[in-house]
């Protein structure tokens, strides 16, 4: 009895398999579609975000600029107005609002340079970094503290007090030298060179005595 039932069922096996195929294929058509995630995976992005290596310090950047490192490309993400006002030398201006424009992709999506984003603080630079990172662009860093930090540490370095470590003095010396490189003038640098004063020596009156006229004497 059971065997008969099994045989009856097995006679239909190809039809059942065909039905399974149709159901599975139909399932693909009927499944609700969702937009697929583009770019790198969320976990990867999170890993990149919490990695402090994405920042470059102002000192390291100054060192790179001064040593004319060809591998860095500075990108100013502030507005064009701010950019024209002041920017770090040789920086490119890609305003944050135009970051994802097509014409900028050639600068951002590359692996030749180390891009360094900066804004007034790291705020906009960080946002730009996240957007680019999410799209899978490589070698992008953020200037820690942005232009403000640049001004506070490189252009206008705080003078170390006497009780600070020697390393602070070294750092100060580096920053001072760097700021001179970027065109900051220091009072001691512009000290007037005093010409040595010439003391007025009292004039000696040299009286020229007139030779007495000597009457000609004899002669041969």
């Amino acid at each position: 009895m059971v065997k008969k039932k099994v045989a009856k069922f097995l006679a239909l096996r190809y039809k059942i398999l065909a039905l399974i195929f149709i159901i599975l294929a139909g399932g693909l058509v009927l499944l609700p579609k969702y937009k697929k995630h583009e770019g790198i995976k969320p976990e990867e992005l999170l890993n990149n975000v919490i990695n402090p290596e994405r920042y470059i310090s102002t000192d390291a950047l100054a060192h790179k600029i001064i040593s004319k490192d060809p591998s860095i490309l500075l990108v100013d993400v502030r507005s064009e107005e701010d950019y024209n006002n002041y920017t770090i030398s040789n920086a490119l201006n890609i305003p944050f609002s135009k970051l994802l424009n097509e014409e900028n992709e050639i600068y951002l999506n590359q692996d030749q340079y180390d891009l360094v984003f900066f804004s007034n603080d790291n705020f906009y630079a960080d946002q730009a970094w996240i957007l680019c990172n999410r799209l899978g662009y490589k070698n992008i860093k953020v200037l820690e503290g942005g232009i403000n930090q640049w001004f506070l540490t490189i252009l206008n370095p705080p003078v170390p007090t006497e009780n600070m470590a020697a390393i602070d003095f070294e750092q100060y010396n580096f920053r001072k030298a760097a700021s001179m490189h970027f065109g900051v003038a220091y009072p001691e640098q512009t000290k007037e060179v005093k010409e040595p004063e010439v003391k007025a020596v009292p004039k000696k009156v040299v009286t020229i005595e007139k030779k007495k006229e000597v009457p000609t004497e004899g002669g041969c």
């Binding site: 065909a18 195929f21 149709i22 599975l24 294929a25 139909g26 693909l28 058509v29 499944l31």
Partner: peptide, 13 residues
């Protein structure tokens, strides 16, 4: 592609 797979399945059967 989903419609293509469905049509292809029907065709194959």
């Amino acid at each position: 592609p989903y419609w293509f797979i469905f049509i292809f399945t029907i065709l194959a059967i």
